[in-house]
């Protein structure tokens, strides 16, 4: 973007009109590439999650003790924590794209981004607190 604004040939074209759509994606972790990257991570983690919780359990789904045994496993706990972080980011980023399809003003779009960021942080606090409670139940 900086490279293009410094180009004298380009400055004759209406710059505001050109840069506006990109400005929203200057936040780190936002944009199509991140949606793809988190999507790939979610694909692996959700497959593990579904197999571990719905396919290999005797009786189909985990009862309380089986959940505690599962979540306190030293390999599973970091993977499920990572799943929580990445899947909520991917999901809220997707919701943001859907909301942006309504054609909001740049100001409204920034507000949406801020609200969704707060939702994500709240999800992290809730999720990590729940995991911490369950880990101590062992």
């Amino acid at each position: 973007m900086a490279l293009q604004t410094e180009d004298p040939g380009m400055s004759r074209q209406a710059p505001v009109e050109r840069w506006a759509p990109e400005e929203r994606d200057t936040l780190p972790g936002v944009g199509w590439g991140w949606q793809a990257l988190t999507g790939i991570a979610v694909l692996f983690l959700v497959t593990l999650h579904m197999i571990a919780n719905h396919f290999v359990v005797t009786g189909g789904l985990r009862d309380y003790q089986q959940v505690i045994d599962y979540i306190t496993n030293p390999i599973i706990l970091p993977l499920e924590t990572l799943f929580l972080i990445v899947v909520s980011w991917h999901g809220l980023l997707g919701l943001r794209a859907v909301i942006f399809d309504f054609g909001l003003s740049t100001r409204a779009e920034r507000a949406v981004t801020r609200v969704l960021l707060v939702v994500w942080v709240a999800t992290m606090v809730y999720g990590v607190a729940l995991l911490a409670i369950l880990v101590t139940r062992r």
Partner: peptide, 11 residues
């Protein structure tokens, strides 16, 4: 889009 919204609601 529709499956994404549905799965996010489920999450």
């Amino acid at each position: 889009r529709l499956t994404g919204l549905g799965v996010l609601f489920y999450l």
